[in-house]
């Protein structure tokens, strides 16, 4: 069953917490991965791969750079999840 927006944000929060050590509650739709959440370009690759597995989506490298905020990623996953 496809994940809801809420479930995706919660999932991303867990992933970001695991990879960058940021508290789950800080991971909000309007937060920028690099500017607010201490996820640099390489950690972002790890976040993306973890999200791919968790939500059954494919996020190609060329799309990764457009995912600036948690909201961008959530929307992308909502639209592309299998």
């Amino acid at each position: 069953m496809a994940a809801t927006q809420e479930e995706i944000v919660a999932g991303l929060a867990e992933i970001v917490n695991e990879i960058a050590g940021i508290p789950v509650e800080d991971v909000q739709l309007d937060k920028s991965f690099t500017d607010d959440l201490d996820v640099d370009s390489l950690s972002m690759v790890e976040v993306v791969v973890a999200a791919e597995e968790r939500f059954d989506v494919k996020i190609p490298d060329e799309d990764v750079k457009n995912l600036k905020t948690v909201g961008d990623a959530t929307e992308y996953i909502l639209k592309h999840q299998g």
Partner: peptide, 12 residues
């Protein structure tokens, strides 16, 4: 190199 593509491949 395509740094991030290589990084993704190497790591996973």
């Amino acid at each position: 190199q395509e740094g991030q593509a290589v990084f993704r491949w190497a790591v996973f």
